[in-house]
Amino acid sequence: MLRKGKQLRRVIVYIILTGFAVIFLIPLFWMMSTSLKPDEETMIIRWIPSRLEWQNYVRAVRAFPFFRYLRNTVFLTVVNTVGTVLTGSLVAYGFAKLRWKGRKALFLVTIATMFIPGQVLIIPVYIMYSKIGWVNTYLPLIVPCFLGGGAFTIFMLRQFFVSLPDEIIESARLDGASELTIFTRIVLPISTPALITVSVFTILFVWNDFFGPLIYLHKSDMWTLSIGLRAFQQRYSTQWNLLMAASTIISIPMIVLYFLLQEKIVRGFTLRGGIH
């Protein structure tokens, strides 16, 4: 009786999840179907193209310096993710597990600054970068990532670290371990799910970041894929099929990467279960 109920519940859960999954798959389906449409069907509402135009993918890649932009984007993504995870976790640990004067106040300030509508900060920040001669280099896009990343990542990591049991850290302290040792040897290894989650968000953010590269880089050689996507949007018309083809190409690495990384989130959890 009990087992039957459990099985029924499992079936219901799967039905609900599958229903949502279908809804969530619509954008991908739409993107791919549009990417394969011939030109004359792009301005017509049609879910399935009359013929599949695979050539669109070749045209899309040729419309802008795809491989150069890809190289730049990969470079920025790798560097910034490493920087954010390294320094961001350090800072978040400081907020979560160390006791020091002004901790609460600084944390509140960190959160509060996120509320200022960003548009009014663009100009002051830009002027500052231009005064120190960093405009037209990658520095404005990279340096903040090596200084803790952003308020969002620090806040997220801090919330994860807060829920770590204090006992592990305390006992290590009593054993005379330095704080840095505790952080690198104990806290980081058991926080893999959190670190991977933050990496996923950082990678995605940098990969799709548009405004930063747009305003800081004055040489098209330095541009990234998200700027390249604009090649398909003209003033009075958009080449939807090519835009979607390019978008698909750009999204696939992210989808694959996410699929692989999230397996690690699960494994990180089992590892941690062992320590508990």
Partner: peptide, 18 residues
């Protein structure tokens, strides 16, 4: 430097401010 019509104004506006 060629910039898309859709982004041109933001980029130029920011640069002008500096």
């Amino acid at each position: 430097l060629a910039i898309s019509f859709w982004d041109y104004w933001d980029k130029l506006g920011v640069a002008m401010a500096a």
